[in-house]
Nucleic acid binder design. Structure first.
Lengths: 203, 203
DNA sequence: GTCTATAGGTGGATAGAC
DNA sequence: GTCTATCCACCTATAGAC
């Protein structure tokens, strides 16, 4: 916060972020990070405590999703999909932030970060904006649907999906997600008639 | 194949599968597997070559999804969601097969397995059954949507999603996925009017 | 503030004997 | 077929010099 000098600490930060995103957490050694930053391995630990803590420090949340969720509701699905495709595109600056965390999800601390990030950046803000029944559940499912797209592209490495026509993909999957955003107001193709009434569930 | 005696090899297999699913790949040591199987660590490697090969050997595909995809199309979305919730339920026998692989997705061989499994068990069979334009893309998106749900529950550990009313969740998300299965035949709530005509895209 | 040197501990994998 | 003993690489952390 407010640091003016770009010192070893920052070079370690940058080196770690780059290598975690490119090679993954397990394959990236503290020695590699140190070498790329031009320091010794000991300094990496001294500044950040551990390799895991360094991972969590470098992998920040994507605030753009929150901004989109706070925007107009009519095109929310398409806007979210469009953004996911944008950040998943090869060459994008923050590409791999999500992938690096998921690939390191063997660690409980990483899973907690993923859970918390989804809750804070997407589910929470979205829940408060949704009308109709099951707002919380639908917000979670919007998050899950986005999660699946980004996982298919960045983790599974589905090149057919990544190289698909972004316009068509956005139109199709955006509409799919939009059906979760819009309250099921009868006869729009939703099987909303079979839904039980919106009785609050959790005591 | 055709082995009658349950020998050390099988005990190693069972021990590895249990521990990988419960504790994850990284947290499970070869020594632990060996101890649980009642053999020495050396034998584990001798039989399966490496810990990674043992993971791939134990983590088989879920053939039930393929059976569902080959079933009736009208309720495909709901049936798929219902099945995902079933296998993700605590206490289910195969719980964690998917999660164990994703949590180990730091390794390229594991990612390849995930990609191939999705292609063979879901995307391929589904693509051939879909009518209308963009069958391949829609099949991939159905797979991605399921992926997101299972990832949210098993990787992120969204307990609110896991403990949600299965009937409501199945109805909502099942309909969402069903909208990808059904060809967009105009006026069912889909913004299909904004879709460009099904012109082949890639030059 | 930064570095050298080092030590402990873990874990996968191998060689060769029984 | 199974075991014993061992190798090697790596992460983590500490102590203390410049």
């Amino acid at each position: 916060m407010g640091n003016v000098t770009a010192s070893s600490r920052d070079r370690i930060f940058d080196a770690a972020r780059t290598l975690f995103e490119r090679d993954g957490f397990a394959a990236t050694g503290v020695r590699e990070i140190a070498a790329r930053a031009g320091v010794t391995p000991a300094l990496v630990i001294r500044y950040y405590g551990s390799k895991e803590a360094l991972l969590l420090a470098t992998m920040g949340a994507d605030e753009t999703i929150t901004q989109i969720v706070r925007g107009p509701l009519e095109d929310l699905g398409r806007e979210l999909v469009r953004h996911i495709l944008e950040v998943s595109a090869p060459g994008f600056a923050r590409r791999g932030v999500f992938g690096a965390l998921v690939r390191a999800s063997d660690r409980e601390a990483v899973r907690q970060r993923l859970r918390q990030t989804a809750e804070v950046t997407t589910i929470g803000p979205l829940r408060e904006r949704l009308d109709g029944p099951d707002a919380d559940l639908r917000a979670r499912l919007v998050s899950a649907a986005l999660l699946g797209l980004i996982t298919a592209i960045e983790i599974f490495g589905d090149t057919d999906l990544a190289s698909a026509d972004a316009v068509r993909l956005t139109a199709i999957y955006g509409s799919t997600i939009q059906s979760l955003v819009d309250p099921a107001c009868g006869g729009t193709g939703h099987a909303s008639g079979s839904l039980p009434s919106s009785a609050p569930s959790a005591p």
